[in-house]
């Protein structure tokens, strides 16, 4: 019976894969030359209109910034949902009173007589190295974030690097005295406030006669300021959200 069921499953799945594969063939095999209209327009006018040399930044923070707003909203909701579910998991574990889950360990790396309540994988080696690398990674993250309009990078990429810097700092906390950056209340605050700022910036174009999501600095000498501003806000928001989520998944959130 079990074997028959397994064969039925495989048969059904093959049917699904076969149907989808046949449907997708024209998509993957299409030989039509790629259209160049949009590319040509952007090469000619993109830098002038948005101020950014990096055309990808020009698109996702200028021409199609509304998509980017949607993207940050998805991130925000995902973080809230993940935190809600994980906190529920933790409360269940605590309710059961299962003390075995937190490993009160004396690992090979800890010093004699030292009291550690943290996880077995937290060794001195890890703490020292990540604690030292953390600030450098943060600095690099801010560089990528702020130079997004000139070089490969931008708010999302920089934000993710900032998040890894935050994770390094959280890992490198010796004796569990958590630094301010790895406290969930502070990260949550940065996240909420930068979301509010993003929306205010998005609306601001209306008051300059540029319409919703228009560039309020379009007529000034530095139209690129809008992109730099958005990059910074997004970088902070992404860094805070993802750092927050990673710290929660490591089990360090209060």
């Amino acid at each position: 019976m079990g074997k028959r069921k397994a064969w039925g499953t495989i048969l059904q799945a093959s049917l699904a894969i076969g149907a989808m594969g046949a449907v997708l063939l024209p998509i993957f095999l299409c030989q039509t030359p790629w259209p160049t209209v949009a590319r040509d327009y952007l090469v000619e006018h993109g830098q002038h209109e948005s101020g950014a040399i990096n055309l990808v930044s020009a698109i996702y923070l200028g021409y199609r910034a509304f998509d980017t707003l949607g993207e940050t909203i998805v991130l925000l909701v995902a973080v809230i949902g993940t935190m809600g579910l994980l906190s529920r998991v933790e409360s269940m574990v605590n309710a059961v009173g299962d003390d075995d889950n937190t490993i009160q360990t004396v690992s090979a790396f800890s010093l004699r007589g030292e009291k550690r309540s943290s996880h077995v994988l937290r060794t001195h080696l890890l703490e020292v190295v990540t604690g030292k690398i953390g600030p450098i990674v943060l600095l690099f993250g801010f560089y990528v974030m702020l130079y997004g309009h000139l070089s490969p990078g931008g708010g999302f990429q920089g934000g993710v690097i900032i998040a890894s810097g935050i994770v390094f700092l959280a890992l490198g906390n010796q004796q569990d005295n958590t630094s301010a950056l790895s406290k969930s209340s502070i990260l949550g605050g940065i996240e909420s406030v930068s979301f509010l700022l993003f929306i205010i910036v998005a609306i601001s174009g209306i008051f300059f006669g540029k319409g919703f999501f228009g560039n309020p600095l379009a007529d000034s000498a530095y139209p690129v300021g809008f992109i730099v501003l958005l990059n910074s806000i997004i970088g902070l928001k992404v860094g805070a959200s993802i750092g927050f989520m990673c710290i929660a998944m490591m089990g360090g959130h209060d």
């Binding site: 327009y41 200028g62 021409y63 199609r64 998509d67 319409g211 228009g214």
Partner: peptide, 13 residues
Amino acid sequence: SGVVGQWFVGVGI
């Protein structure tokens, strides 16, 4: 109707 942020119609939303 229009384009969000009055950008170029071929690229904007």
